[in-house]
Write a protein that binds this DNA or RNA. Structure first.
Lengths: 218, 218
DNA sequence: TAGATTGTTAATCGATTAACAATC
DNA sequence: TAGATTGTTAATCGATTAACAATC
């Protein structure tokens, strides 16, 4: 009966991981929550609270060993293991993901790409062949694929999601602008770019409104 | 002295907007917070609270007029106006964004693309010419560019961010895996894909751990 | 008018921050 | 040992949910 870790904590872990990776590159061996908090612009309290959800990685009077904390967070996130990934939709976005080398470093192995466009099928991107969508189920089973990135139009996404789930995929990285309904033993992580751009737009606009408002006031 | 709208509320608005757009397509004229809450899997209370941050868009006993609410949210988000956007980095990710037609529908006009790769310069993507990075400042000023998408490596991002900000850009859509430091009158919206994938990984892994744990228990 | 549903206040819940005893 | 810094409890803050009077 482990206590449930809050979503807010999880979403901060990759950022800690990134900063720790940079510290390792800089040759830093140990760091206190206070020093890290200043670099990351968060409170030291939050860092300690977050990390203590998973156990005591630090040492009183010393701080945290950077390299140790780095590997521990990797374990927590599950990126110490290998994960088989496929990309469905071999357009620009799919190819952008395929080309992103760092994913492999984090244990994500892109096993295959799929598309319905006959002109793309057979092409090889970064050593990965683009296959026809009809091979999907067989490929997932044969390669024990756990994660599928969906870089396809929203009209196609629900049907494809159902197919990959039935074939055994447990995680869907969804770039389509639609909310997918999935069973309890499957997770969806959405990347809704248009929503992200709208949020940016709101903040840009409210900033400008505020400034022009202040001018009027003075 | 307007009350500050919380970030959580803002981040939900684009999703409301998406659902309302779909309701319009389906020809739905009015909707109650209760009905919408069921479709969106949120509480009706939250919908009403969120919307009331911006004013009373509904009517007791009736609900909300879908089309009216849709246009009101567009106004709040600022997507009723036009915004000039440039994309810096014309690789797959930059091209994926340039090719995404829906952005234009929301008032985002992609004015230009930039890259340092001489083989890309001069190419035309979706009617947009790829220019050399040396034209950046002049182009931003001449076209009154407000938003810049950074689809470039993290090593280049801070320097480019500084340049676009100095030239007058007010919003940065940052796809580089680095945190940008910007002045108070500039906003950054981060899209850190690798962090998103790690979050997915965590959830896939913890799901599997839980299941194998349960097996042991029984 | 009666029924429906909002707008809004109050209650609850969860997340963040502060504080400090424990301990390296 | 003294100083530093964690791990953890308590206090605060903010966000979500529940409830209901107002009103269409």
């Amino acid at each position: 009966m482990e206590k449930q870790i809050s979503k807010a904590v999880i979403s901060r872990l990759p950022r800690y991981y990134r900063y720790l990776g940079e510290l390792i590159e800089d040759g830093v061996e140990r760091i206190s929550s206070n020093e890290l908090s200043q670099r990351m612009h968060v409170t030291a309290s939050q860092i300690r609270q977050d990390l203590n959800n998973f156990g005591g990685f630090g040492q009183q009077g010393y701080g945290y060993n950077v390299r140790h904390l780095y590997t521990e967070i990797a374990k927590i996130l599950g990126i110490d293991r290998q994960h088989s990934v496929i990309i469905i939709g071999a357009g620009n976005l799919g190819q952008a993901i395929a080309n992103y080398a760092n994913f492999e470093k984090r244990g994500f192995v892109i096993k295959g790409m799929f598309d319905i466009n006959p002109r793309l099928i057979g092409l090889v991107v970064r050593g990965i062949e683009i296959r026809g969508i009809e091979e999907l189920e067989t490929f997932i089973k044969e390669n024990n694929v756990q994660i599928a990135a969906l870089t396809i139009p929203k009209t196609k996404a629900p049907e494809i999601a159902e197919r990959v789930i039935r074939a055994g995929v447990k995680g869907i990285w969804n770039f389509a602008h639609v909310d997918l309904a999935v069973p309890d033993d499957v997770v969806v992580e959405n990347v809704h770019l248009s929503e992200s751009l709208m949020r940016l737009c709101y903040r840009v606009c409210s900033l400008q409104d505020r400034e022009s408002g202040e001018e009027k006031d003075s």
